[in-house]
Every structure is written in structure tokens, then in C-alpha cells.
Design a binder for these strands. Structure first.
Lengths: 182, 182, 182, 182
DNA sequence: CATGAATGAGCTTTCATTCAT
DNA sequence: CATGAATGAAAGCTCATTCAT
């Protein structure tokens, strides 16, 4: 893939995260990426297709991440590891996560990415359920939903609700809670 | 407040929820509400100000809702009642909640509503903390954050992630979990 | 109808005739008509709809013109009169006729105006056949087609093929030919 | 001439006929012809020059056709033969004739091809006048204009005006009309 | 309180053409 | 001969906002 195409994706990701998809114009992207409009449309069919390509890349990264945790260790350890990974990503790529929330909730972008969003949810759910299955087969479903809700809720509160969210404190509480699972 | 102004607010809320703030034009609103552009600008300074007025109305409704639960009953009962109210609202006003997530995560609208979003978070946090204070003064902070995260996470998963979310099952789990607090 | 809308139609007709539909931009029209783009799109749904409105106006004028000749006089006199009217229009509105040929042959505009083109052909054919029916019921069909072909062919040659077409000479020949019909 | 250049001309002719010159992009041509943009610009100076080359080819074909009829037979037979050739071409290459009308009436392409259009008209006129000269020297001019008008008018009506034109019937009428010329 | 004509900047997208490889 | 990345101008169209009536 050419250098300039990568540059466009990089800049577009940054601008979509910062200003939202609808408030980022192709002209903006071209200006920041130092390329012409013609070039962008040579590499991408439309503005939407840039979004799809970015979102797909992130989905693939998440899939890889999910595979790492399904190791051979005990389920409790796997959950601890999963929590660690998620919280560290959350702190590191704050803007990327905000961009993801943004496009998932905006009706227009949501429609465009519906398939990928579904796919992501399934990847995460299977990954989590795989762990809880080892603890309690009959309760693994509800436990998975609860766990994912807690993670997503914390992310949401941290990223977009509370100005000074005690992320560390909440993480410790979560780790403690999932240390002993009968 | 005039009938036509109410009509504009009602239609705007519906369209913002359905298509997003950026993808709803003033012309759309006028057409659907059967009023002229001049009239809308007579009642509202700008498109943004319609959004602010809608969001403020919802915030006030939430504040009223929060007051209801701070009754004289036992803290456990208060939490059960709070959960019941939230889940019932969630099912009833699905679109309104989606609209709220939408504007809270889109950078442009987020900036416009920053103050109200903060205010809302504080209202909810105080309301929840007021209950947990009666159970454990030293742990009330972290418990409140965890509780709010669970609620928000469930809402997010139900509204925008999983196509067929087991809302009832999750609600029962949550009620069970908060039935006995030492 | 507002003054400015009329101005737009007038200017658009002139520019379409002079440069063709595809080579006339909305910016061109706005510049010449001294109005903003927004105004044009306030009055017309699209560039196509301007074309349709112009074409429909001309069709209506033609329909009126057709009715004038169906008078009570003898068929030979009616044909002479029809020829006179057509040749006088041809000389007077040369650009308008060229514009009509242009849009009727260009694939894009042809599709847009298909219905009106058909309607026009029927109006003219009925009008001509109405005259020839009085002369020979069984040959009126073929005579009408021949007459229309001659008229259209002369117009085409005059407007777009020969640089110095002997329009008067051809008209006299045609008048002579249709003076005595058995 | 290279295979690929021929392919480009063939595809361009087809697309110009189908969609018009202005609505056919170089990218379209490249895609359909399975060649790169660079190659097309290696063979042709510009998009216009493709049009000129196509039109010139057709003009040359017409010139050859004209020469065939100027045989040693009687003038009446020559006209009958000319009519037969023209009607047979009209039916065979309907799209090619529509393309020719299209570019001759669209102002932009008209300017580009002005010279060739004039040349063509002269070729045809001389060819026809050569026949009528043998019948009546003093009336050959006006008779030629009338004959050409009839042919062009029939073509125009058949190709672009009437949806179900009785081409055979009209042809028979024309043959009958020009069978006996005093 | 109510209308809708009018503006002008900005939007996404298309396109003929060039040029390094 | 052949490719396709890259350009930049221009296209049709949208939209929040203003203002005379």
C-alpha cells in the first residue's frame, strides 16, 4: 500500500476522532495529509469507504487482541489479563476509543458500519464467554453480559461522562471482584 | 409556550434521534413540523439552541426522576426502585436514549452540551452516592462508580451493540446482586 | 412567478441553446442571471428540472400554435398556413430550435425529456393528419409522415448542416408542391 | 495501427453513442477497453482527438459509399439505389447514426467537428446533385435540397422522434415518388 | 407571530490531463 | 508501449442563517 494512502488513513482517523465523521470534510483531510482531493478519490471510492477501511482495521486489531488471552492459564488469570489489556488500551488510545463510540452511535455512520459492529460484538462476546464457560457453564451467558456491561460502562464513563474519572481505583475494584470466582 | 414551538421541539427531537444532529437540516424540521423557517428562527436563536433546549428538558426530567428515589425507605429498597425506574425508562424511550448517547459522543454536539452533560453526571452520581452512603461511607464512592458503570454499560449494550440483548435477564441479575448489601 | 425565477429560466434557455445542457454549469447560469446558487435551488429541484420546465413551456407554446391552423378553411389553405407559420418560427427562434434538437439527441437529456418528446410528436402528427384526412382518408397516414419528414429535414439542414441554406427557395418549392392535392 | 488503439476507438464509439460525448469519461473508456490512461494518452492527444478520429473514419466510409452510386446507369436507377443503400445503413447502424446526430447538434462537439460536418454535407450534396443534373440542370439545385431534406427528416423521425416509425412504408413511398422523373 | 425569497460558503465527487517508472 | 499515482479546477448541490414583507 502506498505511503500516501497510509497517510490519508492516519490523518482521517485522527480528524474523525477529534471532530467526528460528519464534521471532517474531505478538504480538511487533504489539507492535513498534504495530498490532493483527486488522490484521495483515486484510493478511496468515497468518504464513507475511508471510514469503513479504518473501522475494519481496528476490528482486525481487536480480533488479534482477543486471541492473545485465550491462553492455557486458569480462567481467573485470563480475566485478570483481559482487564489489564483493556484498561491499558483505554488509557493509551483514548481518542481512538472515543472515535469508535462516536461512529457507533451516530445514526448515519452506524448504518454504514452495522455489519462490522455486529461482528465486533460477537468476537468480544465469544472471547469472554470462552473464559466464563470454564467457570460455570450454566451461568456463563449472563456472567459474560454483565462483565461486558461493566467494561463498556467504565469506558463510557471514563471517555465521555466524568471529567476526572478514577480509572485506577475502578480497575482495582474490578480486579478484586473477579479474583475469586467459584 | 406556543403550540408551534412545542411542535418544533417535538419534531426536532424525533429527527435528531433518527438521523443525528448533523444530518437533520433546518429545512427538514420546518417541513415535518409544517412551519416556516422564519418562525423557527423567531423561537430559536440557532439550530444549536434547539438542541440545547431539548437536552435541558430531558435533564430536568432526569433530575425529577432522581428525587423520587431519595425516599425514606431502606437503601436496598431504594436501589431496587432505582433499577426498576431506569430499566422501565430504557424500554419506553429507546430512541430518546439513543439520541442522548449520540449527542454525548459526537464531538461537535458534545462541546455544545458540555455543561449539561457534566450537570447530569453530577445529579446521577449524587443521587446514587446518597444511597450507598447509608451502607458504607468509606466505600460509597467506588460503589457508586461501579453501579453507574454497570447501568450505563447495560444501556449501551442494549441500545447500540447487541441486536437481541437479554435485557430482562440482565435486570434480574442486577436486582439479585444489589439485594443484600452488607 | 417571481421575477428572479423568470430571469433564471430566460438565461438558462439562452445558455443551454448556446453551449448545450452539459456545458452549461449552474455557476454559469447564476453569474449571468445575477442570482445566487441557493436561490436557483430554492426555485428548482435540480439542473434537470430547469430543463424540464423550459421544455414543457415550449411544448405548450407548440400546442397552442397547432390549434391555430385547425381552422374552417380548405385543407390546401391550412397546409399553406402551417408551412408559413413553421418557416417564420424557424427564422425567428433559430437558437431555440437548435436547443431543441440538441436536447432531443443527447442521450442524457433525451432520457429526461422522453415523455415530453413523445407528447410533442403526437401533437404535431395529429394536427397534420387532421388536415390530410380531409384530402385522402386512406393515404393520410403516409402523407403525414412524409410531410413531417420534409419539414424536419429542412429544419435540420437549415439549422445545423448547411452554412448558407436557401431557406426561401426551399419554402417556395414546398408551398408549390402542396398547392394542389388531389 | 495497434490492436489496443483500435479497441479504444471501438469502445469510445460505443460509449459516445450510448451516453453522449460529455457523459463519457476517459476513465470509462479505459475501464471498458481494459487499457490504462497512459496508453490512451499515448495514442491520442486528448479526448477531443478521439472524437475527431472516429468522425473522420465515418466520413471516409460515407465518401466511399457515395462513389458507388455514381455509376453509369440511368439517373432514376441511381436514385433508387441510393435510397436503398441509405435505408439499409439506417437500419443496420442505428446507434452510429444517433451518435452522429448527437455530436452534430451539441454545441461543443459541433465546434470541434465543424470542418468535417461541412465536408460531409458537400460530399452528399455533390453526389445527389450529380444525379439530378442528368434530369434537369436548372432545377437540380432545389431538387437536391428537397431530396436531402426528405432523407434527413425521415432519419431524424425514425431515430429520435417516433417510437414506432413505419420505416418500410415511408421507404416505399419515397421509392415510388422518385421512380419517374421527367 | 409568520412567511419564504435570497445569500454565500462549503460540501462530496468527477474529470481531463500529466508524468515518473 | 504501458502503468497508475497524482493533480487541481470545476461540477452539482446543501445548508444555516437573514430579512423584507
Amino acid at each position: 500500500m502506498s505511503d500516501k494512502k497510509n497517510k490519508v488513513i492516519e490523518i482521517a482517523t485522527m480528524l474523525f476522532a477529534k471532530n467526528g465523521f460528519e464534521n471532517t470534510s474531505m478538504a480538511n483531510i487533504c489539507l492535513e495529509a498534504n495530498v490532493s482531493k483527486g488522490l484521495v478519490y483515486h484510493h478511496f471510492k468515497s468518504k464513507e469507504s475511508i471510514l469503513v477501511e479504518i473501522f475494519t482495521q481496528v476490528t482486525n486489531q481487536m480480533a488479534e487482541m482477543g486471541e492473545k488471552t485465550t491462553s492455557s492459564s486458569k480462567p481467573e488469570a485470563q480475566i485478570q489479563q483481559l482487564i489489564e489489556i483493556i484498561f491499558s488500551q483505554l488509557k493509551k488510545d483514548k481518542h481512538l476509543f472515543q472515535f469508535n463510540l462516536n461512529v457507533m452511535f451516530q445514526p448515519t455512520t452506524r448504518k454504514i458500519l452495522h455489519e462490522q459492529i455486529e461482528q465486533r460484538a460477537n468476537i468480544l462476546f465469544k472471547s469472554v464467554k470462552g473464559i466464563f464457560d470454564q467457570i460455570s457453564a450454566e451461568r456463563s451467558n449472563v456472567l459474560s453480559y454483565m462483565f461486558i456491561a461493566e467494561i463498556d460502562g467504565i469506558a463510557l464513563n471514563y471517555l465521555s461522562i466524568f471529567d476526572d474519572y478514577p480509572l485506577e481505583m475502578v480497575k482495582e475494584e474490578l480486579l478484586k471482584k473477579y479474583r475469586n470466582l467459584k
